[in-house]
Write a protein that binds this DNA or RNA. Structure first.
Length: 300
DNA sequence: CACCATGTTCCTTG
DNA sequence: CCAAGGAACATGGT
């Protein structure tokens, strides 16, 4: 479930459940998930500590904790990787397969489960230093984005995945944002005019806001079974919205929602990119497409 | 068996 | 020094 909107929704779900809860037990089943911490150091820091809040930066979850006595408050960083999940379940419930870390709380467990073990839960906060601005924050302006893109010859789609440019976009929403902005994914970043960049900034924000808003109906207290489909928790959980959510991602060969031209898939930086060859063009007269951008997306 | 997969980091090559 | 590409990480779905 790991791009900014999914992490945002996760944080909103976790915050009220964890705040003011104390950690009575720390269970580590996959030491590698704590890297670079030693299990000992991790356990020593967490055991007996109390959650004071949960936040997000990019795709990272930030847990805030305090301890009794003289030891200062501290934070730990969580990342879901490709397949990570975090949820709360009753103490007596069986732990699912591929559980990496369990924190025993008052009558319940916080479970970090990750089939591929690409995720992390650690005292090491250094990844935060490498992140660019929040895409929905005040620093993510047209001027900023234009300045950062104007000297790069890298394809725009690949640039958008760089977390030091903007924090939180992943493979799915990068494709979705470029579709909404009408920009071809292969175009070198430096070829975008200021107007293109403005359209792109708006599209990024619209796509992310829309995903967060739509996700409010998604059940987040998932604790075992398979997700409804391969894409996060989407699908049967929210059938009404499923169609609208992703307009190009994973739709190779399917008709473009706007012009019916078949969606194409290309590989860039070893990742799939999906786009509409007709709607995404830098030819004059094309830009943000208002017709595929419902008012609820707030893309202006 | 083959190929694909929402992410990040490290290594090599140019 | 930088950019770009590929592999690695580990497991499961199709």
């Amino acid at each position: 479930m790991p791009e900014l909107p999914e992490v945002e929704l996760l944080v909103r779900y976790l915050a009220p459940s964890l705040t003011r809860q104390s950690i009575a037990r720390v269970g580590i089943r996959r030491e590698r998930m704590l890297r670079p911490d030693s299990p000992r150091a991790f356990k020593r820091a967490l055991h007996g500590a109390t959650f004071t809040g949960v936040g997000r930066r990019g795709k990272y979850v930030i847990f805030e904790l305090r301890r009794d006595g003289r030891r200062p408050p501290f934070r730990i960083l969580g990342h879901l990787g490709m397949t990570g999940r975090m949820f709360i379940q009753p103490s007596e419930a069986a732990l699912p397969r591929h559980t990496a870390v369990v924190l025993g709380l008052d009558g319940k467990n916080f479970v970090f489960q990750d089939t591929r073990y690409f995720g992390r839960l650690t005292l090491d906060l250094s990844p935060l230093d490498r992140l660019g601005p929040e895409p929905l924050g005040p620093e993510f302006t047209d001027q900023y984005l234009f300045e950062r893109l104007k000297r790069s010859s890298q394809a725009i789609k690949v640039r958008l995945l760089d977390q030091s440019l903007v924090a939180g976009l992943g493979n799915i929403y990068a494709s979705e944002a470029l579709f909404l902005a009408g920009i071809p994914p292969q175009v070198p970043a430096r070829r975008l005019t200021f107007k293109h960049v403005r359209a792109l900034r708006r599209a990024i924000q619209a796509v992310l806001r829309h995903a967060i808003a739509s996700g409010s109906t998604v059940r987040l207290n998932w604790s075992g079974g398979q997700p409804a489909d391969g894409l996060f928790y989407y699908g049967r959980e929210a059938p009404e919205a499923a169609e609208e959510r992703l307009r190009v991602y994973d739709r190779e060969g399917a008709p473009c929602v706007r012009c019916r031209t078949p969606i194409r898939r290309v590989v860039q930086a070893a990742r799939s990119t999906f786009y509409c060859p007709r709607c995404q063009s830098l030819k004059p007269g094309k830009s943000v497409n208002a017709r595929i951008c419902p008012s609820t997306w707030r893309c202006r």
